[in-house]
């Protein structure tokens, strides 16, 4: 059973925000008006943040620095712990998933997540200029289950899923072709699109996978390691 993980090399990241846009198109995140965005209600499962300039003595660093942030898919996720109904849960492969039909919208998980990766549907999702004609039809659906890019109703929480629908599709393809599924058959949309090839994806339990090798790098670090969440998104320091 693979343990999915992502490595983001900040040295290669050019902060083009391609990952954010790819994610938006892939996962049908609704677009909000500028006034709503000013309220902090924009939905970017994968966001890119400018970091504050560091000051050393009197000189402020001239180099702009950025951090791109998908869901960390923690090994020990604080959001899963607090969900009263199991709408957010961790599957066997370590993915932290979100079931839109189960969620009661109490927003305990959004408050508990130290990374702020969880988004709430303040309104019914809307797209302008016929964009709703071009939504990704993929969805993960079952009895009492609705996940992935499926359009969310208002009042529920959503988050980055590591493109769970792509994983399902890759598995289905392997099955249709009558062979075993290989962990390198699937990557999330942000990894596929990354301009600087700064993102890597794979199985952390496979000692020879790219992510396993990169995780050994001396540049490797995890966000808020001290919070005890054991994130499976691993960053590589700049320079």
């Amino acid at each position: 059973m693979p343990r999915w993980s992502m490595v983001i090399d900040l040295d290669k990241c050019v902060a083009c925000q391609g990952c954010s846009i790819a994610c938006r198109m892939e996962n049908n995140t609704p677009i909000v008006s500028p006034s709503e965005a000013a309220l902090g209600r924009s939905m970017l499962w994968n966001d890119v943040f400018p970091l504050r300039a560091e000051e050393e003595g009197a000189i402020a660093s001239a180099k702009a620095r950025f951090l791109t942030r998908p869901c960390m898919h923690c090994e020990d996720p604080p959001c899963v712990k607090v969900c009263p109904v199991g709408a957010t849960y961790q599957d066997d492969e370590g993915l932290v998933r979100q079931n839109y039909t189960r969620c009661i919208g109490c927003r305990f998980c959004t408050v508990a997540c130290p990374y702020g990766v969880r988004y709430f549907n303040w309104y019914e999702p809307a797209w302008e200029d016929g964009l709703d004609q071009h939504l990704n039809p993929d969805r993960v659906e079952g009895r009492g289950v609705l996940e992935g890019p499926a359009v969310r109703p208002k009042g529920v929480v959503e988050k980055c899923t590591f493109c769970i629908h792509r994983l399902h599709k890759a598995r289905a393809r392997a099955e249709a072709e009558g062979r075993d599924f290989r962990p390198d058959e699937y990557v999330p949309a942000c990894v596929q699109t990354c301009t600087g090839k700064a993102r890597f994806f794979g199985d952390l339990d496979d000692a020879n996978s790219t992510v396993s090798l990169l995780a050994q790098s001396r540049r490797a670090f995890r966000l808020l390691n001290e919070a005890g969440t054991h994130p499976k998104v691993i960053y590589l320091h700049e320079g």
């Binding site: 607090v82 109904v85 529920v156």
Partner: peptide, 29 residues
């Protein structure tokens, strides 16, 4: 107040049918 704060108040009974006792919200309930 809790019900008013919920995004999907009509799913309140999920707390009974799918209640997870690990969540402090269940303790509250």
């Amino acid at each position: 107040s809790i019900v008013v704060d919920m995004g999907r108040p009509e799913r309140l009974l999920n707390v009974i049918s799918h209640g997870r006792f690990q969540s402090p919200l269940l303790w509250d309930f």
